[in-house]
């Protein structure tokens, strides 16, 4: 589904992402883990075309920067940044309009129910708490029923119920064949969901693991494995 080839992103002499290549198959949930400053957000932004980079990114048969690819791509940034002057409902409606989603009202109602946003839907986003804004950001990414979803630290600020709903949503996306690239620090919380893990440090991939090989050969948890690999690297 997603094919990333030799992505390099530099800021002057600093190489933030160094020749990274990987692929995510249809219906896979890929977790991007790494210490702070490893280049996770930069990598996601580069893939999305928000940062200029070297290398190629293709989504299915489309170039990642084409309108066709954008039509099937959802994105929730690290910090929810919403239009202060639009209400929660208007945000979802705007996204539906921009992505050409026809029947958006029923899926929106379901999303609002899941994330306890129904009674907040007519509030301006400026008036919401950070956690609530994160929920709106996730709803915006979900409303378009994307085939590829990019989530940058999506669980930060979410309450336990919202985290549970978010995980259920991930499972649903996976079940309908959507692919997910998710960066997170909370490794334990997505232990049962991932299909592929990419560990990065200092802009480079230091380990790529598939679920099958992990289960066959490893007895430790993903978090323990991540910590021991990071110790080795440092």
């Amino acid at each position: 589904m997603l094919r990333v080839e030799n992505i390099t992103k530099s800021y002057g002499k600093l190489v933030a992402v160094d020749n990274v290549s990987f692929k995510i198959n249809k219906g896979e949930i890929c977790i991007l883990v790494g210490p702070n400053g490893a280049g996770k957000s930069t990598l996601i932004k580069s893939i999305l075309g928000l940062l200029k980079h070297k290398g190629k990114v293709r989504l299915g048969s489309y170039d990642m920067e084409s309108i066709e690819a954008r039509r099937i791509t959802g994105y929730a940034p690290e910090t929810p940044i919403l239009h202060e002057l639009l209400t929660v409902r208007e945000h979802v409606q705007f996204i539906a309009s921009a992505y050409g989603v026809e029947d958006w009202e029923e899926p929106m109602r379901v999303l609002f129910d899941r994330f306890d946003l129904t009674d907040k839907q007519n509030k301006l986003c400026k008036e919401l708490s950070k956690g609530m804004q994160q929920k709106v950001s996730l709803c915006c990414a979900a409303i378009i029923s994307p085939a590829m979803i990019f989530l940058d630290e999506p669980m930060i600020g979410l309450d336990p119920k919202a985290i549970r709903e978010f995980k259920a949503m991930l499972a649903e996306w996976k079940a309908r064949g959507a692919s997910v690239l998710l960066s997170t620090h909370i490794i334990d919380s997505i232990d049962s969901l991932w299909d592929r893990v990419i560990m990065i440090s200092k802009g480079r991939i230091i380990k790529e693991i598939e679920r099958k090989s992990f289960e066959d050969y490893r007895s430790e948890s993903l978090q323990d494995m991540f910590l021991s690999i990071m110790e080795e690297v440092s």
């Binding site: 928000l50 309108i67 066709e68 921009a98």
Partner: peptide, 9 residues
């Protein structure tokens, strides 16, 4: 940036 630049417009 987060909402419009990513949209298929």
């Amino acid at each position: 940036i987060a909402l419009l630049f990513q949209a298929p417009v």
